[in-house]
Amino acid sequence: MSEAAADHGHHTPAFYVKIWVILLMLLGVSLAGPEIGIQWVTLLTAFGIAVVKAYLVAKNFMHLNLERRYVVYLLLTAVAFMFLFYAGTSPDIMNHVGRNWTNVAAQAEVERATEALNHEVPHGADHGAEPASAEGAEHH
C-alpha cells in the first residue's frame, strides 16, 4: 500500500474532521430550508444538499478521488441504470392519465385521500388525534 500511503499524505485526521464539520453545516442548511416555506427552496436545500453531502462522503471518506477511474464509472453506471428504470416505469406509475388510458383506481385514491386529509383536525395529528389514514379506512 505504499502508493496509497503517498496519496493519502494530505488526508490527516484534521482534514477528515474538517469535512465532517462541513457535512454538519450542510445538514443545518437542509433543516433550515423548509423553514423559509418556499417549495422550490425546500426541494433545493433538501435534495441539492443531499447530492453535495453524498459527493463529499464519496470523495473524501470513500476516497473515490484516489480510486481507479473505472470504479467511479461502475458506481455511476449502477446509478444510471436506476434512472433508466425510473424513466421506463414512471410513465405508468407516476402519471394517472395518458394517451388512451386512465388509471381510475389511482385517481380515486388521490381524491379519497385528499378528502380525508382535508377533514383532519388542523395541526392535530401530532397531538394524538386520529391519523388521516385511520379515518380514511373507516369510510370503506
Binding site: 410513465p91 405508468d92 388512451n100 388510458w101
Partner: peptide, 11 residues
C-alpha cells in the same frame, strides 16, 4: 398489460 402506448413504441 396497460403500459403507456408511447412507451410501447420505444420498447
Amino acid at each position: 398489460s396497460g403500459i403507456d402506448p408511447r412507451m410501447a413504441n420505444v420498447f
